[in-house]
Design a protein around this nucleic acid. Structure first.
Lengths: 328, 328
DNA sequence: TTGAAAGCGCTACCAA
DNA sequence: TTGGTAGCGCTTTCAA
């Protein structure tokens, strides 16, 4: 049924070792032999068993990608870039959606660990301690989080928030609401911190409305609270929340940006298609993914070691959901 | 560094074989022994090497998911459901985005084949011949396509199109444009066929504007052609194309649904958030994924054999992008 | 109930 | 340049 290296060897009239060399190390074998091996391999449609190979070499040719929620459009964007980049390096991708659950995240990392050469952890939700201990045992690149000396690729959340607040301040907003995302999210902590700092530096009053799930429903649920807060503008943890808010505001007949300005974060495709289109801080998702895998692959190849931190720029996309603060 | 079954055996004072049994077959080993083995395993944080296991058992515990484009929101939806379902059965997921490229699809299936127990091929783009030959060698469930006797899960495209046309006919539309998707897409062929049939049965004139990539840009690019066709309503291969069209129509100041009605297909989340919201034929994506894996897992467990075809219902979501046909 | 041994497919070392 | 051999971690006979 399944064709092995032995079958190829027999057909080519050489030993399995030679087949192995001919396939791996074209230099170490006489041209004529290589021809015959390659011909035999092609004829039998031989494709090596990478799992078996990994037993001897210790390298699987796989990378593990772990993320909190495929339903959040930022992650497909990242995954897509990762796939493309990984394939170029002839690596396959194990994907695990851990449903925003830190315990599940830890579990999946453990079970996948032996089958991958390294991990790309996207916005991981588990503790610093866990992540550090994983990083001690296997190559890891973390996306959207910084933890100890673990190599990471992040977006410049602070600058993004600063751009957003500068924009809102210029429009006359002096009372701002922030709708936070998951407590387990490092990005949320970063964004919260940066927003507080930016608001303070502009003398803007900040109302924090509490944490919601990073989904449309989260935004729908918190919209009324934001309205009641007396803020003239809201910044949300991410675009999904902002879009949910827009929906609810529209349903209540509250004008955007006439009565309330809304700023999202991430710059997902959808944010530009709704109307009013959402002003948002764009994070270069594809680039995050691409840079992340590249870094991981370098780590695996031993061409890099130790701690690397890459921070990618964010930029504010000003669209129709923000406008001058209403007079009160 | 890495802890193997031998380490556990040594610590528990038994042979590797016993460790194996204690872990796999709790019945075949004396309770006391099992206790010691489990304790040792826990102490060493032992986690079996599934790749090694697969060498002896012939089963990997992995399933391969292959899809044409992560950027199309239908696929993250499917993948998410697949992940959840696969995890329940303790299976991990290999993911491959083949970028709408049939040749790449074939290549990835070949290279992944040895590392998975079976495949879930989502909207595969390669030829019937290839798919049949893969299905002969390894368990496969195909989503959004029917090919030979290969087990499949599809949506009821025909009924969806019939619902759409019935709706448009009731609104007075008598000249309809269809914007087709990829030629390589079975769903596109199905939808085209069904639409022709439905239109004919209602005596509606159908203008086919040609194929576009199943992306926003495809819709943007074809919008002007649709307008020039003199149709009063357009049905598109999928929601992304429809959303792209809405964008372009809006930019040109063409009223929707006043001057042109638009119907999409798939029912992606985004379709409900734009304005006007998109009338679309909803495909139960999560269910597709769930049913697909379940079927595959049954196949793997040998609890099912032969050809199974599941067809899931679609339903028309009537929203703001469709209205009465303009008088001409 | 347990251990020894063989073998899954592949690679890598050592001789020849 | 080539073949034989050992071994990667695990499972699965086969005996004891």
């Amino acid at each position: 049924m399944t064709v092995t290296i032995k079958d190829v060897a027999r057909l080519a009239g050489v030993s399995p070792s030679s087949v192995c060399r001919a396939l791996a190390d074209p230099g170490q074998v006489r041209p004529g032999t290589r021809e015959r091996v390659l011909a035999a391999a092609r004829e039998l449609a031989y494709s090596p068993n990478r799992a078996a190979r990994s037993l001897s070499t210790g390298r699987t040719g796989n990378i593990g990608v772990v993320l909190p929620d495929m339903a959040n459009p930022v992650f497909p964007g990242i995954v897509k870039a990762v796939q493309t980049q990984a394939r170029k390096a002839d690596h396959a991708v194990f994907l695990s959606d851990v449903e925003e659950d830190p315990a599940l995240e830890v579990h999946m990392i453990r079970t996948l660990a032996k089958q991958v050469d390294g991990f790309l952890l996207c916005s991981p939700r588990s503790s610093d301690g866990h992540l550090r201990s994983f990083a001690d045992q296997t190559p890891i690149v973390v996306l959207n989080r910084r933890v100890g000396r673990v190599p990471s690729v992040t977006a410049d959340n602070a600058d993004g928030m600063l751009q957003a607040v500068t924009h809102l301040h210029a429009l006359g907003h002096r009372r701002l609401a922030y709708v936070a995302g998951p407590r387990t999210s490092w990005s949320n902590r970063e964004r919260t911190r940066s927003l507080r700092q930016a608001a303070a530096s502009f003398g803007i009053e900040l109302v924090e409305t509490g944490h919601v799930p990073p989904e449309l429903e989260g935004g729908v649920a918190i919209a009324d609270v934001v309205v009641a807060s007396g803020a003239t503008a809201a910044v949300t943890y991410n675009d999904l929340i902002a879009l949910g808010m827009l929906n609810r505001l529209h349903a209540r007949g509250i004008g955007v940006p006439g009565e309330m300005s809304v700023v999202g974060f991430d710059g997902i495709l959808m944010s530009g298609l709704v109307s009013p289109a959402l002003t948002t801080v764009a994070v270069p998702m594809e680039q995050l993914g691409r840079v992340g895998v590249d870094l991981l692959l370098e780590l695996l190849a031993g061409r890099r070691t130790g701690s690397i931190r890459r921070v990618l720029p964010t930029r504010l996309l000003v669209r129709a959901s923000t406008g001058p603060a209403p007079h009160r």
